[in-house]
Simulated scan of single mutants.
Amino acid sequence: MLPRIIFCIAVIIAILTVVLLALLSPIAHQKTSKNSRPWLALSLYIQQPNTAITNMQPVAASDADAFIFHRTLTQGPENTSRVIGKAQGFIIPVERFALSTFNVIYLTFNTSEYSGSLSVHVKHVTHKDREELTVVGGTGSFAFARGFAAFEPSDVNATYHVKLQLRFPNRSQSIPR
């Protein structure tokens, strides 16, 4: 009979402990709002090739053209800026850009701050000279990234300015900057 009473008391103490920890824990009272996670903003440039022969390769697709491209990502708009990675993709020309589900751009980073890649897909064309795309995932430093990418022509050397707004779900630590 005594072991049964001791067992019941131990169960009651265990239940009370769990309930008290749930009520008094500071973690339980923190807001876990989706909007409380910080955004990471990056600004970079896609450079045009320096050579007379472009590495933009047109690919015929019935009556429409598509372009497969390989470009350099730099920190600044000048072609002498620090190289931070590369941009590769497959796009449909501007007049059909918003209607295509095949517009895919991969941004690959290789720096001491960031190592990994981002996959960017078309969202919608906001106006003639700017495309807004959706970041749908990544690898390495950008694992599980979500967000937006705005592509617009730069005033320097026919480059494209890319502005990224990234969010990382369920990440307990921030990316090193």
Rank of each mutant, 00 (worst) to 15 (best):
R4C: 12
C8D: 01
L16D: 05
T17W: 08
L20H: 09
L21S: 11
A22V: 09
A22T: 08
L23P: 00
L24R: 14
Q30K: 15
T32E: 15
S33C: 14
S33W: 06
R37Y: 12
L40Y: 06
L44D: 03
I46E: 12
N50Q: 14
I53P: 00
T54F: 12
T54D: 14
N55E: 14
Q57H: 12
V59R: 03
A61C: 11
S62A: 14
A64D: 14
A64T: 14
D65Y: 14
A66S: 10
F67I: 14
I68C: 09
F69S: 07
H70C: 09
R71S: 13
R71C: 08
G76R: 03
N79D: 09
V83L: 06
I84H: 05
G85Q: 06
G89Q: 04
I91A: 04
P93N: 04
V94T: 12
V94R: 14
V94P: 03
R96D: 00
F97S: 03
L99T: 10
S100M: 09
I105A: 01
Y106M: 07
L107W: 03
F109D: 02
F109M: 04
T111H: 06
S117R: 04
L118Q: 02
V122Y: 01
E132H: 03
L133F: 02
T134P: 00
T134S: 12
G138P: 04
G138W: 01
A143D: 04
G147T: 03
G147I: 02
A150H: 05
F151G: 01
E152F: 01
P153H: 11
V156W: 00
Q165W: 08
L166V: 05
R167I: 13
R167G: 03
R171L: 02
R171G: 02
R171D: 01
S174F: 02
R177N: 08
